[in-house]
Design a protein around this nucleic acid. Structure first.
Lengths: 203, 203
DNA sequence: TTGATAAACTAATGTGATTAGCTTATAACT
DNA sequence: AGTTATAAGCTAATCACATTAGTTTATCAA
């Protein structure tokens, strides 16, 4: 029973994590939409039905990708933001967000699906991302719901920019790095200026 | 030749616009991902292969949806922004953007695909949207690339917020309308404050 | 009335997901 | 060492859907 606690399985067998990781490589290289089990099985040197021993079909793979993608993004943001505060922290966060999405476009897209209530991994990872944003914004001493509003604005801006960039939605050739920097700076200016809140903090 | 100019065709025949419109209804009701030709054909009381007389398969439908969606969004924005300027115009635009995306989630999502160079309708519609944004931001007298940066920031914020909202990406229950309003106001505050530009306008 | 055209249809093919049921390597236990 | 249960793999079959080929037929122009 507990004999297997300290030993690697010698069978060339797969497990769920391996399948999901392989799928992640595929979607980053080929796109999320064209993901299919035949290609995934071939990459793992296995026949398609064998995958069902480890994941619940194609949708199970997608659920796993969502959780993995959100977790990886969270780790990346955490690493970028640790030890930084204020404007420096916000810029570091925003740059890490964009860099991650561009390095892992398929996995990033996969993480944006509506979370099923039973996908607790995904939900937890989403909450951690939100927590990091809030932590970086903490120095601005936002009152009440203002911190939530600001965190949502920052996430929306980062996600929206990257998502439009990847979708080719910015027609013009004007430098995208400069636009992103400027966009983040606009948000920061408001936070520093402090006068954007409708219901002004009581005191 | 010109005998048909003033008369409706009595055959129950379809045309491309009718097919795309029916597809638009479907994707708004059922989602973009699950769109399929069998369902679309059934809705039009026709067998699946008959659709190929009017559109180039499923991908042709998707291309048509992208163009229709972008055009409809542009019209909506235009109607919302006409006659308004400054902060009022920006809010009207942002609210119209969000309302449109929530009323037509499938069509909105369809409009975000990477535009093929030959999809001139889509490209033109995208440019018109950008033009409306720039027009509404004109009163802020932004110099050089700053107008482009601001337009991109506004689009990114609106798209990002709505897209995350539709994807269930905001876990918390805090009022979404208030967050959206606050996010837009942050952008506006920067525009009015004016001090967010790195390369400050020369004069 | 007749012939051309376009739009519909049926039939067939291919890809991909999924399920059922069989086979066998591995690990636990004698 | 031998036995057995389990889990992981496999083949075969089914179903849904997209797409193409080839046929039929309604409409329009002569």
């Amino acid at each position: 029973m507990q004999a297997n606690a300290d030993r690697r399985n010698t069978r060339p067998g797969l497990d769920e994590a391996t399948v999901i990781r392989a799928a992640a490589d595929l979607v980053d290289a080929e796109g999320l939409e064209t993901l299919n089990l035949a290609q995934l099985a071939a990459k793992l040197k296995v026949k398609t039905p064998s995958l069902y021993n480890h994941v619940s079909g194609l949708d199970g793979v997608r659920r796993g990708l969502a959780a993995l993608g959100a977790r990886a993004l969270g780790e990346r943001l955490m690493r970028a933001a640790v030890g930084k505060s204020g404007a420096e922290g916000v810029f570091a966060l925003a740059n890490a967000y964009r860099a991650y999405a561009k390095e892992h476009p398929g996995l990033y897209a996969a993480s944006l699906r509506v979370p099923e209530p039973d996908n607790t991994d995904l939900i937890a990872a989403d909450e951690e991302i939100l927590g990091i944003l809030r932590a970086v914004l903490a120095p601005y001493h936002l009152q009440g719901d203002a911190l939530t509003h600001a965190a949502r604005a920052l996430r929306s801006l980062a996600h929206g920019f990257v998502s439009l960039e990847l979708a080719g939605g910015f027609g013009m050739p004007t430098d995208l790095d400069a636009s992103y920097r400027a966009s983040i700076r606009m948000l920061l200016t408001s936070l520093e200026y402090g006068d954007w809140q409708p219901e002004h903090p009581a005191e």
